[in-house]
């Protein structure tokens, strides 16, 4: 089996598991403040896991790209501990709050710079903005076959075979490599990275390359921010339970009304 080169795009986000009480909204600054540690977006972890498995099977090299204004290599080094060979941070002041299109453009710049690859994997969507666009736009920009929502990926004679989620179940599809695939959680969780492994990776003198917009050949004019014009807390954040009073019959009546309004 020939070796494969995989590029995984991983986004750093505040832990989406954080409870409601630790999330607040600053409407003035139009920022969501999450009092939680930074993590790798869960679907991107799924993508990394599938990449590592493919590498274990066929051999090859995995490069991880992570883009942001400032990316924490302590968070992203987890990808190296998990089995990635190379981590490249794409850091630039102009990379703050980029919209999906600009994010994809910057990532595409980095991928062109790497040049040689068989698969580009991304999570199906990020755990913070839940937009679900970057992967597919990236595929378009690189003019690759695009497959979304993969739950299983295998390689066969230069082709990639994917089981992708569809509303009725799943579809088996095939495309020639190089290809872009967005990965769904069904592929499985990222393997556990022990603290010992992680610490070893932290202590490693290995320096992590960081590429700026200029390195990627992306002009600041080509980068657009998300264009948020207003940000607010969702109206039903506080849950004050409204107890429906009365006889069981009356209570049922009120409850039925509730269902009607929610319809």
């Amino acid at each position: 089996m020939t070796e494969i080169r995989i590029i995984v795009c991983a986004k750093q986000i505040p832990d989406p598991e954080a409870p409601l009480s630790d999330v607040s909204v600053d409407a003035e600054k139009m920022e969501v403040i999450v009092d939680a540690p930074q993590v790798i977006s869960p679907f991107d972890e799924n993508a990394l896991e599938v990449a590592v498995r493919l590498k274990e099977e066929a051999g090859g090299k995995i490069s991880v790209l992570s883009l942001g204004k400032k990316v924490s290599d302590t968070v992203l080094r987890k990808t190296l501990a998990a089995g990635a060979d190379e981590l490249i941070l794409l850091e630039d002041d102009n990379f703050e709050n980029l919209d999906s299109h600009s994010t994809a453009a910057a990532l595409a710049g980095a991928i062109r710079k790497i040049g040689d690859y068989d698969l580009v994997l991304t999570g199906r969507q990020a755990g913070d903005w839940d937009s679900g666009q970057v992967g597919l736009i990236l595929g378009e920009m690189l003019a690759l076959p695009c497959i979304s929502l993969a739950r299983d990926i295998s390689i066969e004679d230069g082709n990639v075979l994917v089981k992708k989620n569809i509303p009725e179940g799943y579809e088996r599809v095939k495309a020639q490599m190089p290809a872009l695939i967005t990965v769904s959680n069904e592929v499985g969780e990222l393997r556990y990275i022990s603290r010992t492994k992680m610490l070893k990776m932290m202590r490693g003198a290995r320096s992590i390359p960081s590429w700026s917009a200029e390195d990627l050949g992306v002009t600041p004019e080509a980068l657009q921010q998300m264009g948020i014009t207003a940000l607010s807390s969702p109206p039903d954040m506080g849950r004050d339970c409204e107890l429906l009073e009365g006889s069981p019959d009356e209570q049922a009546e009120k409850l039925a009304e509730v269902f009607k309004t929610l319809r």
């Binding site: 832990d15 598991e17 954080a18 409870p19 009480s21 630790d22 009092d35 939680a36 540690p37 993590v39 998990a82 969780e189 393997r191 556990y192 990275i193 022990s194 603290r195 492994k197």
Partner: peptide, 25 residues
């Protein structure tokens, strides 16, 4: 790493990040 059951994997992550196995905070 690959043989750690799913829920335990999540619990260990939580233990590391939040110093408890129950809540992400």
């Amino acid at each position: 790493g690959t043989m750690v059951p799913k829920l335990l994997n999540q619990t260990l992550e939580k233990l590391f990040k939040y110093n408890n196995p129950w809540e992400s905070s």
